[in-house]
Simulated scan of single mutants.
Amino acid sequence: MSRPVLIFDFDGTVALGHGPVFAYAAAVDEAAGLNGEMASKAAEMIAAGTDNGAIDAYDLVRMLAVEAGAGPEALDLGYKVSRAQLGTDQAAILAPIGLAAFLGQVDAERILITNAPEDRLAEAITLLGLDGCFDRVLSSGGKPDGLGRLIDELLAADQKRRILCIGDIWRNDLEPAHARGLDTALVGGWGSEKRPATYQAADVAELLPQIQAWVGQ
């Protein structure tokens, strides 16, 4: 029988902290010549937990930037600049407590899939203390559709394979699994819209006992 599969998202799930989002806001603000106003507003709204219907903090920054007059070029450049800063003092991140130890001993296939590009992803994983903790790392994953394709690939090899998807954005990280009748774990408190999930907690650290129990079923 195939080992169970744990599929993790990166930003907001494995890599915690608002540093990368604030770096994105600052870079877009500068690229669009907004004099710091949009970045300041974004920081205030994120701190207050005001989502304005955005699917995540990056989407909130995008919405605010467009409202302030930023065009696609400024958004694209801002994102590229912020990803080049990933894991630095300008875009600090940290791992959930206990995640490295858990991934080091769990008897499951461990996959990381992110929509972010490859830029500094390996360095960020090292910084988080997660070197060697994933069997596969997939950048530019094109979620949600890319996650659906990954799941279908896994199920094509073994239709009875147990899969648990773990992430902070329901639409991107969990919906493809939910649509296929698979288990899901929603982490974080972003967004006002409630969505179904097998497990739910403030962060991955809280969920580790439940994930361990799921693997051992």
Rank of each mutant, 00 (worst) to 15 (best):
M1W: 09
R3K: 15
V5H: 12
L6R: 11
F8G: 04
F8I: 13
D9I: 06
D9A: 12
D11R: 10
G12K: 06
T13R: 10
T13G: 07
V14C: 10
A15Y: 01
A15L: 04
A26K: 10
A26L: 09
V28A: 07
E30N: 10
A31W: 07
G33Q: 08
N35V: 02
A39S: 14
A42W: 00
A43D: 05
A43Q: 13
E44G: 14
E44K: 13
M45W: 11
I46R: 10
I46Q: 00
I46T: 06
D51M: 02
G53S: 08
D56M: 06
A57S: 15
M63C: 03
L64H: 13
A70I: 02
A70Q: 03
G71E: 04
G71M: 12
P72W: 03
E73K: 12
A74S: 13
Y79L: 13
S82T: 08
R83K: 13
A84S: 14
G87A: 00
G87C: 01
T88W: 00
Q90T: 05
A91Y: 04
I93A: 06
L94F: 15
L94V: 09
L94C: 13
I97N: 02
G98K: 03
L99M: 07
L99S: 05
L99N: 04
L99I: 05
A101F: 01
A101D: 14
A101L: 01
F102V: 03
V106N: 11
V106L: 03
D107K: 14
D107M: 08
A108S: 12
R110T: 12
I113H: 11
T114N: 13
E118N: 11
R120H: 09
A122F: 00
A122V: 14
A124T: 02
I125V: 11
I125T: 03
I125E: 00
T126P: 01
L130S: 06
L130T: 02
D131N: 15
C133W: 06
R136D: 10
V137P: 02
L138D: 11
S139K: 06
G142I: 11
P144K: 04
P144F: 09
L147C: 06
R149F: 00
L150D: 04
I151D: 09
E153Q: 14
L154S: 03
L154F: 09
A157V: 12
D158I: 04
K160Q: 15
L164V: 08
L164K: 05
C165F: 01
I166S: 00
D168Y: 04
R171M: 14
D173L: 09
P176G: 07
P176N: 05
R180D: 13
L182M: 13
D183G: 07
T184F: 07
T184L: 10
V187G: 06
W190M: 10
W190E: 13
G191N: 05
E193V: 15
Y199M: 14
Y199P: 00
Y199T: 07
Y199R: 04
Y199F: 15
D203K: 02
D203F: 02
V204G: 01
V204T: 08
V204Y: 05
A205G: 08
E206V: 00
L207W: 03
L208W: 02
L208P: 02
P209Y: 04
V215C: 12
V215A: 02
V215Q: 01
G216C: 08
